[in-house]
């Protein structure tokens, strides 16, 4: 046994931030995440074991105490726990009727905020990001240029952009260049 020194955690695009008068883009803090796949019975059993209600309608999200559940598909949710970035929820779950897979390190996120946030994203995301079409507290998997992202509108002018870690430099650079055009 070697002596137990804590192993260093290095997240992608750590500490990144750019901002101008209409939009800021920064790397979100580390979080733990679960990709949950389940039948509706499985979803109920999952809710019981974590005491956390899952959204059941397309694009809906649910949040409590720093924990967010995002509806991604009829049998798929992304759970993000900002409060406990180093603690995976998976080991505490039974292994029946659903699949819970730890994806804490697979994903990372950027926070795009400001009155130019939607315009920044629309440089490469084809979705209608008006408040009517993409209301606050809704989410969707979609694309940003050639990267797949999960887009989660946490407030009127704030989006959380989740992507796979190796796409982070691409998403970062794309958002940064798009931000130059966000005042239009």
């Amino acid at each position: 046994m070697v002596e137990a020194t804590p192993t260093k955690r290095i997240a992608p695009a750590e500490g990144f931030r750019v901002a101008n008068s209409v939009v800021s883009i920064e790397t979100a803090k580390p979080a733990s995440r679960i990709s949950l796949r389940a039948t509706s019975a499985g979803a109920r059993s999952f809710e019981k074991s974590l005491n956390f209600a899952l959204p059941r309608k397309p694009a809906e999200t649910a949040s409590a105490k720093g924990r967010h559940a995002l509806w991604l598909g009829p049998d798929e949710w992304l759970l993000i726990d900002e409060a406990n970035p180093d603690d995976s929820m998976v080991p505490r779950l039974p292994n029946k009727q659903f699949s819970a897979v730890d994806v804490s390190h697979r994903n990372m996120a950027f926070i795009v905020a400001g009155p130019g946030a939607a315009a920044t994203l629309n440089a490469a995301c084809p979705r209608n990001l008006s408040l009517a079409a993409f209301p606050v507290k809704t989410c969707s998997r979609t694309v940003l240029g050639k990267a797949e992202i999960v887009l989660y509108r946490t407030a009127r002018d704030t989006f959380r952009v989740e992507c796979w870690r190796s796409y982070a430099p691409y998403v970062r650079d794309l958002l940064a260049i798009a931000s130059k055009d966000a005042h239009i």
Binding site: P58, L72, G73, P74, E76, R141, T142, V143, E148
Partner: peptide, 8 residues
Amino acid sequence: RHAHGCGR
């Protein structure tokens, strides 16, 4: 397939 959406 809604590949970059719900996956269905």
